[in-house]
Design a protein around this nucleic acid. Sequence first.
DNA 1: CTCACAGTTTAGAATTATTCTAAACTAGTT
DNA 2: AACTAGTTTAGAATAATTCTAAACTGTGAG
Lengths: 144, 144
Amino acid sequence: MGKAVRDSKTLTVLTIGRLRQSGLRPTRQRVELASLLFRDHDRHVTAESLHDEITKAGVKVSLATVYNTLHQFTQAGLLRQVIVDAARSYFDTNTGDHQHFFLEKEGLLIDIPGETIAVAGVPMPPPGLAVDRVDVVVRVKRAP
Amino acid sequence: MGKAVRDSKTLTVLTIGRLRQSGLRPTRQRVELASLLFRDHDRHVTAESLHDEITKAGVKVSLATVYNTLHQFTQAGLLRQVIVDAARSYFDTNTGDHQHFFLEKEGLLIDIPGETIAVAGVPMPPPGLAVDRVDVVVRVKRAP
DNA sequence: CTCACAGTTTAGAATTATTCTAAACTAGTT
DNA sequence: AACTAGTTTAGAATAATTCTAAACTGTGAG
């Protein structure tokens, strides 16, 4: 077995550890979803797309559980919710500081690394308010 | 009558002109909604909030028409849709280049003038795509 | 000024994403 | 093996938004 190869049993063990560290009981559903989500980096999913994907992989998880899990993972800091479309919520496996390209027509999100874009001149918020974070969305279209 | 005072009849006439210029037939509903929206500057409304407001002003307009009108005004460039909340859509009467503070908990949007924030380093979009616009949302919380 | 019709409004039904509910299940302990 | 708190689930419920098809109204022609 090659050094970079990680069999699914190993992945499962790692995933269970990760869930435990986040205070989440490693149920079958959570392990399956987490394995899928965190196998590769920088994934962007919607509840629907993730449910489709895991269902097609032959794993039975209800849509309600997918919603619950996405929110729990988000609360635990394993995911980040991305609000770019009025119609649906996206979740990003990249929780670090970064921004996005968004192609609305196709529901396509693409990460822009955190150091790439610099935002200067953010004014002081009105009294009583504090900046939580600054989101930049670069909306793109198919070129003409 | 003071020089800056604009009676409602004058407002109506101006509004009708504005709608005509945008290729929108000045129906009673559209004139009423436009008068309300563009009387003051920098308003942020949701379909629901605008419907409430106009209803309380004693004007009868259906919620469906409010939705239609908001979208038509947006298409005509009289409004700009602001996507900051997964739960509802905001519309902004300020269509120029500018950004926003957003206080999610209270659904509060505050304009940041266009020259205030500088965004540098936006990378080239992937081949075949062109930047449509860059949105910056400064998410704020009540200070601790 | 009146007609005719394309465009508009509307109530209510339909749709869509998401959340809720309460009953059945299961991981982790004892 | 039994217990229990936390979890999953199907299906109902909710909320924002869109659709539908019937009634209504600007507006340009005559």
